[in-house]
Amino acid sequence: MNEVLKAVGNVFLKMPLGFVVTLRHFFKKPVTLDYPYKKKPMTPRYRGKHYLERYDDSTERCVCCGLCAAACPADAIYMEPEENEKGERRAKIYEINLLRCIFCGFCEEACPEEAIFLGQDYEFSDVNRNAFIYTKEEMLVKHPRKDNPFKRLYRRVRKVHGVTDKIS
């Protein structure tokens, strides 16, 4: 008898509360991001797929000095130098193995020419392992950019410290 009363009490007093909770959540907006169609904006400092910058006259910034490869803890960067028409040094081969890369951003920090940056792109999955070795042609930007992240950083540093010398 006691058990019956307890069960009936639970059904009439406690169960409706649970039903109210689920019904309330039913009318809330789902937290799911409709991913392939809608994307979450990345943070400005997100470290995604690398890209190589150009100077304003669209020559490559990279001089193939090898500092990025030296800084790389995963040993993911391979390069061979050559000379361009003007006799300047540049990379003949510049490859990053994205399967090895850990996206730490040390290459970006090590680069004295502000040539390599980690971008916002994170959608580079593939079914072929060879596709993950990105060559220079794949990473070079098509046109020089007015505003690369380092320039923006320098501008802020100069503003804070009152430095007046010009940088390109």
Binding site: T22, L23, H25, F26, F27, K28, K29, P30, V31, T32, D34
Partner: peptide, 10 residues
């Protein structure tokens, strides 16, 4: 659909 929305899914 209903169960999904109750669990904040789509």
């Amino acid at each position: 659909k209903v169960v999904a929305y109750m669990q904040h899914r789509m």
